[in-house]
């Protein structure tokens, strides 16, 4: 009897870790333990942002993940990513997949969005178009270029005559708006983009100078030779 108990304990010692590992592998393969899953395909032009395991979400709620990515060579190179997603969420067959970053350093996610008009439900084997592609890296690159250009422009504007007062006002308004947008982006993602931050700081200082000057001596500023 004692040996039996002993054997059972040793058996449990092997079985429990194996069960834990199996559950983990099942989850890693994209299956869900609580709900059934279906496999659908995502057609994308490049796989720069997604990889095996990339989360698939609807309205921020995790419904599955990418389990494989296969290249398709014809008619031109594109990719089909297999999304293993829960079948409990209603999705239209013409839903779209937006590949986006959660924040600057986080992994990309695939956000599935239903169209306004409801249609047939998305079924296993259907292909979803990856119609939007937002890369934070690319965006930051563009922002950096923009800021450099803006800073240069502002510096030139400081020196030029005030022939186009109206334009300056308009420009300053737009500049303020883009500065606020950039601030929002960078608040969300405190990335290691020292260069971008530096440029932004420089631009902000220039803007501050102009704004202060404008506030204190608006007429003098506008009529400055």
């Amino acid at each position: 009897m004692a040996k039996r108990v002993f054997e059972i304990k040793v058996g449990l010692f092997f079985i429990i870790p194996i069960v834990l590992m199996t559950v983990f592998v099942i989850l890693k393969l994209g299956y869900s333990l609580s709900t059934d899953t279906i496999d659908v395909y995502l057609k994308i032009d490049n796989i720069k942002m997604i990889k095996d395991g990339t989360a698939v979400k609807v309205k921020g709620y995790d419904i599955g993940r990418v389990v494989s990515i296969e290249p398709v060579y014809q008619p031109e190179l594109h990719f089909l990513a297999t999304l293993r997603i829960s079948d409990q969420i209603f999705l239209n067959e013409d839903c779209v997949a937006v590949i986006q970053n959660q924040n600057v350093i986080g992994d990309a996610i695939i956000e599935l969005r239903n169209p306004v008009k409801k249609g047939k439900p998305l079924q296993a084997g259907d292909v979803v178009e990856g119609i939007e592609y937002v890369s934070i890296e690319a965006l930051l690159g563009d922002v950096h270029k923009l800021l450099v250009s803006v800073t240069d422009t502002v510096n030139i504007i400081k020196d030029i005559s005030s022939d186009s007062k109206q334009d300056i006002r308009k420009f300053l308004g737009e500049l303020s708006a883009s500065s606020s947008t950039l601030s929002n982006i960078l608040d969300d993602s405190q990335a290691d983009v020292v260069k971008t931050m530096g440029t932004l700081r420089q631009t902000s200082e220039t803007i501050k100078e102009i704004s202060d000057e404008l506030k204190k001596r608006p007429l003098k500023f506008l009529l400055k030779e």
Binding site: F24, K28, A55, D62
Partner: peptide
């Protein structure tokens, strides 16, 4: 917890 598990599963490879 779900997000933690998801990140672990994402980070872990075969």
């Amino acid at each position: 917890p779900q997000q933690f598990l998801a990140t672990i599963i994402n980070a872990f490879s075969f």
